[in-house]
Design a binder for these strands. Structure first.
Lengths: 143, 143
DNA sequence: GCACATATTGCGACATTATCGCAATTATAT
DNA sequence: ATATAATTGCGATAATGTCGCAATATGTGC
């Protein structure tokens, strides 16, 4: 089942129609390798009115088509789980480098934590910050 | 060591000065039981110029005095780890209820994951969404 | 394929949030 | 107490997000 089909299935299932603007915005998200700021998404779809872009983004979030991640200071939007391999981030407090985390254990723990609270896990966002190894060395040399 | 002292220590350590506005904003964050929108913080400190509030919040984020969490759609700011018991959130995709998660295992796993990547963990944010138990029942009754 | 009921869009106006340069002020170190 | 450098407030402006409503596109039943 293609990403596109998953998308249209979700819309149909929720009784909302598949329109050109929605598809265009979905495509932008699909093409993006990185999470995007809402403003950037609007800029990448100049033919679509800003108000519609925001309404669409709000809808996508509601339907769990997208989820929002924090990178440092700004909130970013990316396609959610079913549409892309989900990975988490860790960034260095010193140099700002950001790396992906792929860790099956982590996913399992999250599922467990959710079910302990009686929840059936849908989405999850994990953002870590810390001192990366090279900065750790540097700072121990120049204390 | 009081919260206030921790705060001034961090500032001193980073060669930035302790000023009235910064202290006021810190106090607002300290009093807040819940994470706040940046705009609310500005509203709670009317004597301080908006621009300064934003500059301060940016500084706080940079120094890891605060961290940013996503609640649904909006980014919220709260004091970071050293200043308050850190807890994570899980919210229901259906009814929007948000609960705190306190789970020692989770913290341990995060520390482990970070160190696997060579990082020394500083801050972490975990936001989960899922179907809560009562909504699960409701939806299975009305499919 | 057509017409209809309804969801969705675009538009324009507006509210809120965020950023910038610069002069005035305030904090720290001496 | 004074000098120096950091920080603030101010004013202007950009960017972001929201609202109501008329125009338009969408999915459904015929």
């Amino acid at each position: 089942m293609s990403e596109h089909d998953k998308f249209s299935t979700i819309l149909k299932h929720n009784h909302v129609s598949m329109t050109k603007p929605r598809l265009a915005i979905f495509r932008v998200l699909l093409d993006a390798k990185e999470p995007l700021k809402n403003g950037e998404i609007a800029r990448l779809t100049p033919s679509i009115d800003r108000a519609s872009v925001y309404r669409t983004l709000e809808l996508f979030a509601l339907l769990n088509i997208t989820n929002t991640v924090i990178r440092g200071w700004t909130p970013l939007t990316e396609l959610a789980g079913p549409f892309r391999a989900h990975h988490h981030h860790i960034s260095c407090t010193e140099c700002g480098t950001t790396e992906n985390i792929e860790d099956g254990t982590l996913e399992d723990v999250l599922k467990l934590v959710a079910s302990k609270k009686g929840y059936q896990l849908a989405e999850h966002s994990v953002e870590l910050t810390g001192l990366c190894s090279s900065c750790k060395e540097t700072s121990s040399r120049n204390p």
